[in-house]
Write a protein that binds this DNA or RNA. Structure first.
Lengths: 98, 98
DNA sequence: TAAAGTACTTTGAAATTCAAAGTTAAAATA
DNA sequence: TATTTTAACTTTGAATTTCAAAGTACTTTA
């Protein structure tokens, strides 16, 4: 087994890493806020959130705030767990690469 | 400026992350040892080391050990600096994503 | 009713990744 | 001496990923 096997491929990507990091510490974040924090285009953000959603690492909630449609993202328990494991693997790799 | 701008794209990739982590704590590591630690194919390892070499993050040294050719990899000061910066950005992102 | 905003989905091209096969040169073996 | 093996790649080509831009559907505001 290689050293990097516990590093989650889904989190190899900076944008997805950013999304997860943000969702780890914020109960909910909406589309535009994520877009602004990460400085990405709509389509790009949408495809990365979808990737994380397919893995059931995040979930989506749509609602109207006043008159405007609003989409919020949440991290799931599975996502939280996977992310923690990834961070642990990262720390391990960096501190302990034999 | 987005949250993830200080994350180095070259280190997004698990194999390159692994190579750098290993070279951060080992003065020199040879091709076969890297291959074994990371559990990758020859061609795959060669292309990732080349990517890091092109960025001048690592350097190569060829010699014969006894009768056998041997290739050693080292991290450069630039690479060390870039990697530290990346790790700091990662920590920042994870602890502080606003 | 026309224009603008939200949150996408689709598209298509470019970039990246990978294993496998091929290469080169030296070393060991027969 | 001829053949095989080993190290460390390079090349190839296919699959996958990434991305911005364009398109979509619905809603609100002017």
């Amino acid at each position: 087994m290689g050293l990097i096997d516990n590093i989650n491929k889904l989190f190899d990507h900076r944008i997805r890493l950013g999304i997860m990091s943000i969702l780890m510490v914020n109960d909910d974040v909406d589309f535009n806020r994520l877009k602004e924090l990460l400085d990405v285009t709509d389509g790009n953000l949408a495809s990365h959130t979808k990737t994380l959603e397919n893995a059931e690492y995040i979930k989506i909630e749509k609602a109207f705030i006043g008159k405007k449609p609003n989409t919020k993202y949440f991290i799931t328990p599975l996502g939280k767990q996977a992310f923690k494991k990834h961070i642990d693997a990262l720390e391990d790799l960096i501190r302990n690469p034999k």
